[in-house]
Design a protein around this nucleic acid. Structure first.
Lengths: 247, 247
DNA sequence: AGCACGTATAATTTATAAATTATTGAGTCA
DNA sequence: TGACTCAATAATTTATAAATTATACGTGCT
């Protein structure tokens, strides 16, 4: 039948590059929030933002709705949207959950790894430790996130991956905020940790890799706690951009 | 504006609904999906839906975006949205994650319980075991979800609660689908399990409550596996409502 | 007939404009 | 002076209409 031919042509998945404007604004806003370009608590006013991105109100609004569902922005009905506030408490919750979920995902991923996966891990690691372009901080954190995501990529549970990706977004934001707050403390030799993690993953030593990842996350959390005080100060400083200056 | 909208909006279960139209459509669509009123894989065409809900395209679209971010609908750019497909595999993943996360949330919740919380638990339990109005299936599942949510309510980690709530939504959908598929199996004496859970929670026996919850979830998963075959059949039967019309 | 191409139709996506709601500020009365 | 009212303004929210894209169908060619 001709049905098969038609089905082949409209095969889902051949469209790799989604091109709608709402998607673009979504990604753009996400990276703006993760990079700190938009500060926590900052208001997102529809008009100026639409002009700044050269899009209409509709796709902008849709992007905001999606980000709200992901927890990156908060919407108060009838009163506008703002970048999700940041707090040390939230950061602790996020990293605790990552310490619980990421190792689990890593175990399943490594147990179903293959050559292509290991190659991808090696590549992501190289991209991370030896950034090509400018040593931009946001680029560095993007590579870091990509490395972790690659490690988990073979996990078969799409839901577990969905949750880890969600948490990874937020922890990337906190990593950036902490760095901006002057977090030189907590520099617990992350390069060595990542290297050991890479080696264990490539060697197929699942148990060791899982342990290393958990320790890595816990130490990151500890380092984040070390600058919690300063971070709070920064958040407080950014907060006064509040809506109403009611007495 | 048209005056008949008030009548249209007084559909069952929304009158205490403050907020915007998009919020309303969001809740309405969510419950439609969770109740199976909209079947997995079913297309969500903007025009008819907007007319059916008596709203414009904009708020409807925003609601769909939010539901997509929550995983209840899937959007293929330029090609429309559809209710997220259901599969036994997804159900397993969801219940496995619940078995991991819910007990953790329950532990923290019960460790910070108080009289008001215990009263809420007792109330939610009564509402569940003795439904007042019609013995509607969706109402029953809503009460069941409410009971579980109440148990976890005192958990201090807002992120953990966010994840459990997300998973609860999807597991409620699967509970409905399984029941519609004729899941009399898996009736592993849920009433007794819930009763014991309630008792342990009210008595402050945290360890026991946590164990009971984990077992409850694992048995629910087991019961769900029992009807997996039939469920697949149902999903397959519903699937042919696919995108492209028959040739 | 079978396949490709072009046109027509339908649906999504975006833009623009109207309307509802919140907030600000001045003016007024106690 | 202080609080309260009420218009003015700004922002969100919704509606409507235009444009972009995908899909279906008919037409002509090999």
């Amino acid at each position: 039948m001709a049905k098969d031919e038609a089905a082949l042509r409209s095969d889902p998945g051949d469209r790799v590059a989604p091109g709608t404007r709402a998607d673009w604004v979504d990604r753009r806003l996400r990276s703006a929030i993760l990079s700190g370009e938009l500060e926590p608590g900052e208001r997102l006013v529809a008009g100026p933002l639409a002009q700044r991105f050269a899009v209409s109100a509709t796709p902008l609004r849709e992007a905001i709705q999606r980000l709200a569902a992901r927890g990156l922005v908060e919407i108060e009905p009838q009163r506008g949207a703002r970048v999700a506030p940041a707090s040390p408490r939230d950061a602790e919750e996020i990293y605790e959950l990552r310490a619980l979920l990421d190792p689990r995902a890593l175990r399943d991923s490594l147990e179903h790894s293959d050559d292509a996966h290991r190659a991808a891990i090696e590549l992501a690691y190289e991209d991370m430790v030896r950034p090509k372009g400018g040593a931009d901080l946001v680029e560095l954190l993007d590579r870091h996130a990509a490395f972790h995501a690659t490690l988990l990529a073979r996990c078969r549970s799409r839901w577990l991956l969905r949750l880890t990706a969600l948490l990874a977004d937020h922890s990337q934001r906190y990593a950036m905020l902490a760095t901006l707050a002057g977090a030189q403390a907590g520099h617990h030799d992350t390069v060595a940790e990542h290297g050991a993690l890479r080696d264990a993953a490539l060697a197929g030593d699942v148990a060791r890799a899982v342990t290393l990842l958990r320790e890595h996350l816990e130490q990151t959390l500890a380092g984040l706690r070390a600058v919690a005080g300063r971070e709070v100060a920064v958040v407080r400083a950014a907060a006064p951009r509040d809506t109403r200056r009611r007495t």
